[in-house]
Design a binder for these strands. Structure first.
Lengths: 199, 199
DNA sequence: AAATTCCATTGATGTAGGTCAAGGAGATCA
DNA sequence: TGATCTCCTTGACCTACATCAATGGAATTT
């Protein structure tokens, strides 16, 4: 665990988006965090294990996916610097996780453990609000994504994704983007070709 | 507002699934509820309005949907007796709702108003836990549904839906089920034909 | 009871996206 | 240095699902 306060800059900024903390509260919050480093391809969480942590991504890139019956990965979320990632269901319920989370690049995370989380909410109730907003945002994001699957074509979804996160195109391998969009790598490859031709 | 305690039986049962209340707390909780009756086709909430209530369905059936750019309805949730329904995002944030919610049958709901909701959480903190579980369950349900769109065929999704909620087949009109599944009514009609033939 | 509207069904045809198989370019390793 | 592996691309063919148009029955209005 680091004590260098500078390193928590990013997570404090993130929290400050929704609630305002005193200096003492910031210090307390940071004291509950632990730093976790992951190598490329390393698991943060495997389906079946209980997720004891929620985490904030300081640097790096991760992906969270389900495995379907045929063993295919279905990516439900990417995570980059400044995002929270975890299996909230498992974290809150204590039941085994259904998601697997894996680093796509070398990454550095800040983790908060389940017990410390309860302590935090107890001592600084503002965090109730913070995490409810986080959960509610995640909920809305899923709802929107579901609708874009009900409504639009794969190409529309791909363009939406690129518009929202232009960095993805360079940074995230094709097959992972395909899995996120719900198409085969072959089809995404063709789509890209079609799109570059049109220019 | 009703005071007949018998009528709140269903919602108290629902709450009891996750937290245990004293008699006094039950009474207090019920005192914050108001009864809302809806005719068939009546709106509970229209996109653009702020959702001031969350609601529990005592009797009846509702549907919650987005309108896409072309004006098509995309159903994201059904609600039957014993379920909660609302636009949580709008309820918590105070921003305009993105969902429209409409009664498919004559329905009776119990509503809790946003201010009363805060009072409730303040006086009976157990409800923090209750609503976090609710939100987290909704989140998981959406995640699963998203995955079933990424993974499976419309027929698989239809069969899953029927397996989970056999009542839907008789009770909910074909075009609404089609919208929920993300297919055209024509295609769902053909699917049903195919499925009945197979028997 | 007729008129009107809404809705499920069916047919004909078109298209987005899947599957399978092969080849090639970059990494990683011996 | 070549050998193996992983990943992207491309081609040929197939299928799930959409679109459009027509029909008839059920429900709602007059």
């Amino acid at each position: 665990m680091k004590t260098n306060s500078e390193s928590f800059h990013s997570i404090l900024n993130n929290v400050a988006k929704h609630i305002t903390l005193t200096a003492a509260e910031k210090k307390f919050f940071c004291s509950l965090l632990r730093v976790k480093k992951l190598r490329k391809r390393q698991y943060l969480l495997q389906a079946g294990d209980v997720s004891r942590f929620e985490q904030f991504i300081n640097t790096g890139a991760l992906r969270a996916y389900y495995l379907d019956e045929k063993g295919h990965e279905r990516i439900v979320q990417f995570g980059l610097e400044g995002w929270w990632i975890g299996d909230m269901a498992s974290f809150f319920s204590g039941l085994p996780a259904t998601l697997t989370i894996e680093a796509m690049e070398e990454s550095e995370l800040f983790q908060i453990e389940r017990n410390d989380f309860d302590v935090l909410l107890d001592k600084v109730p503002k965090f109730e609000r913070f995490f409810r907003i986080l959960l509610s945002n995640a909920h809305i994001a899923h709802q929107r994504r579901l609708v874009s699957h009900l409504t639009g074509s794969a190409q529309e979804r791909y363009l939406e994704l690129l518009a929202k996160y232009p960095a993805f195109e360079q940074r995230i391998p094709l097959r992972h983007i395909a899995s996120y969009l719900g198409v085969t790598p072959e089809f995404l490859s063709r789509m890209r070709k079609r799109l570059t031709k049109k220019k």
